[in-house]
Design a protein around this nucleic acid. Structure first.
Length: 605
RNA sequence: UGCCCGAUGGUGUAAUGGUAGCACGAACGACUCUGACUCGUUCUGUCUAGGUUCGACUCCUAGUCGGGCAGCCA
């Protein structure tokens, strides 16, 4: 979806990981800083991933480095091409105009190649980077896939066996668990732990050949069954899975596990800094063990961990997000109420606001919960500067200006964005009949009510001050029409233009305005920490979506995807991805707007 | 209870042995043709107890509290 150019990024942030990288740059430890963003293609990216993306790509761009997009696709039973495509799209959207020149892709179909490093045989897979932020990604490149390394990973496993550091284990999954022991109790060595290298090699070859059923055997590292770190108790390297792979096809029935594949994938791509979340701290010794056990000839990557993002009133668990989709609480992964990148994009949130937000949260090892207000502030700040102002009425009520004759519109001028240095304007026509917001009139006004009331005066934005003379009601007593007099000498440039009234309200002309479907969103959950609930479905906000038919000023008829508008006094709006665009016939399909976010409302009601 | 990680205003985050600062938020006020924006004022903090030091948010020890780890998931 097209996106208007983003505003420039703020000054480079600082955090403990960036400090480490800066230290390495200062001592010239690496020729180039290379990071990676390595999602498993088993779900949609969400706002938590945005933090990781901005960290990894941010570090790359701050050091003229590179950040590879790599799919950690080592478990074919959970993964799907649909996710590969959505993730690629979301990453490119989030970094567009900011770090796309740091995005490391590879030539389509490329695999690691055999090279010689420091006199030793080695494997390496180079990246392709577009030369500048403005360049488009050519068609001959694609993201990296861990599954493209299965051949090399297999060769490394054979080497580990030859070095006596891995063995084929015949324990069942259940027995493997029993032998592992518990955190406060050492494990027990597998009876297959001391097989000969020759036997291990033979068995591993036959595992690859498909001789054994799923779960019958596994390849295990030989580390320490008594380690206080559970991840060092001979963790599995390979398991047997007789299933096809979405990217690698049906070549394999043997698939590597994360801890084995990840560090080596990093190595093959020449990653220098492998940044992940805190739950992998316990895995770091294993990450290093695999790499060091192989005696690899190039500089080894290192793992660094940070705390993932927790946001108030928001869920980011893939499983729970999936439940929202399958239970039809939302319309899909890209429902504008979802915290997915595709949902946020559809909602109208600019990528730059997302970047500003996740960067402002900082990077630490503290498990924190960020208030949603911080995110909302980032969105409003961005949109306040960028959005075109327009007039629209969400819940219309008719108002008649009795001293303006029908068919004789009064010309007015509206400012497109007062935040601009040299604001442009557009014409507006004030006619005898207009719509105002139902909320902007009160027959029995509460205290400190600035808006229109019987006998009261208010300004119609960009037009003039009006005075409420009388009300027309139907038989049930409901107001059907508000009748006012327009004080035409209070228009801009007229003799009484400086007259002050307390309230200014928005309006649209009844003639020429367009009807549009407007979707108003509220937070999806009613509690600050829905993840802490025993049943998160019980705290879903029943009023998270309200659909209204709004009256919009005529200029909005040409709105298109990627446009950002502020409907004055109401909030920020953007066209839904499913909205029709282009010249719309009268009575034809209506535009569909999503309210991205309301304006801040400090009026205590 | 074995190992690992962490703790600074309501929230998030700086201060790398030398003035506890910034942002969000809240309250009040100014301004206002958006009850927005902007501007001003105010609010609240180093988990506890010892120790090292001229000096500790920072280093050490012990404790308290919170989080993570026992998938052939990532």
């Amino acid at each position: 979806m097209p996106e208007k150019p983003d505003s420039p990024a703020p000054a480079a942030p600082s955090d403990f990981i960036r400090d480490i990288v800066a230290g390495h740059v200062a001592e010239q430890r690496y020729a180039k800083i290379v990071t990676r963003f390595p999602p498993e293609p088993n779900g949609y990216l969400h706002i938590g991933h945005a933090k990781s993306i901005c960290l990894n790509f941010g570090i790359a761009r701050e050091h003229q480095g590179q950040c590879n997009l790599r799919f950690d696709d080592t478990n074919p039973v959970k993964e799907d091409l649909e996710y590969v495509e959505s993730i690629t799209r979301d990453v490119q959207w989030l970094i567009a105009g900011w770090a796309d020149h740091c995005l490391g892709f590879k030539t389509k179909g490329a695999h690691p190649v055999a090279i010689t490093s420091n006199g030793q045989p080695d494997y390496y897979l180079a990246a392709f980077q577009v030369p500048s932020p403005d360049s488009t990604v050519p068609a001959f490149v694609e993201p990296f896939f861990a599954s493209d390394y299965f051949d090399q990973l297999y060769a490394y496993a054979v080497e580990l066996i030859k070095r006596g550091k891995a063995y084929v284990c015949d324990l069942s999954p259940e027995d493997t668990e029993k032998y592992r022991g518990a955190p406060d109790r050492p494990g027990q060595e597998s009876p297959f732990r001391n097989r000969s290298v020759a036997e291990n090699l033979d068995l591993f070859t036959r595992m690859k050949a498909g001789e054994f059923p799923d779960g019958a055997r596994s390849l295990r590292s030989k580390i320490d069954m008594a380690s206080p770190n559970m991840w060092l108790r001979d963790p599995l390297l390979y398991r047997i899975r007789h299933v096809a792979h979405h990217h690698a096809g049906d070549k394999w029935c043997l698939y590597p596990l994360y801890d084995y594949a990840h560090c080596l994938s990093d190595y093959l791509e020449g990653i220098t800094h492998s940044i992940c979340t805190l739950e992998f701290v316990d895995h770091r010794p294993l990450y290093d063990w695999v790499l060091e056990s192989l005696g690899l000839p190039r500089a080894l990557p290192h793992q660094y961990e940070f705390a993932k993002l927790n946001l108030g009133y928001t869920l980011v668990s893939k499983r729970k997000l999936l439940t929202l989709v399958t239970e039809k609480v939302v319309t899909g992964w890209d429902d504008p109420r979802m915290p997915t990148l595709s949902g946020l994009r559809r909602r109208g949130i600019p990528a730059s606001a997302l970047r500003t937000f996740v960067t402002s949260v900082g990077v630490t090892k503290f498990d924190s919960v960020t208030e949603i207000a911080v995110f909302e502030n980032a969105i409003r700040t961005e949109l306040n500067a960028a959005a075109q102002r327009r007039l629209g009425v969400l819940r219309p009520i008719k108002l008649v200006l009795t001293n303006i004759p029908a068919g004789e519109p009064v010309a007015c001028t509206a400012t497109n964005n007062p935040q601009d240095e040299n604001p442009t304007t557009r014409p507006l026509a004030l006619t005898r009949e207009v719509f105002i917001e139902t909320d902007d009139f009160a027959e029995m006004p509460p205290p400190k009510y600035f808006r229109l009331k019987p006998g009261g005066e208010v300004r119609l934005k960009y037009a003039c001050i009006i005075k409420c003379d009388e009300l027309v009601k139907d038989t049930s007593g409901a107001i059907t029409e508000i009748r006012c007099t327009a004080q035409l000498d209070t228009r801009t440039g007229q003799s009484n233009a400086d007259k002050k009234v307390k309230g200014t309200i928005h309006w649209v002309s009844a003639t020429g305005c367009i009807d549009a479907e407007v979707r108003l969103y509220d937070r999806l959950f009613t509690v600050p920490e829905p993840a802490a609930e025993e049943d998160f479905l019980k705290v879903v906000n029943p009023k998270s979506l309200e659909v209204v038919t709004a009256k919009l000023e005529p200029s909005l008829a040409t709105a298109t995807h990627g446009d950002r508008f502020q409907f004055e006094r109401l909030g920020y709006f953007a066209l839904d991805k499913d909205s029709p665009v282009g010249p719309l016939l009268v009575g034809g399909p209506r535009l569909i707007f999503n309210r991205t976010i309301t304006l801040k409302d400090t009026w205590a009601k």
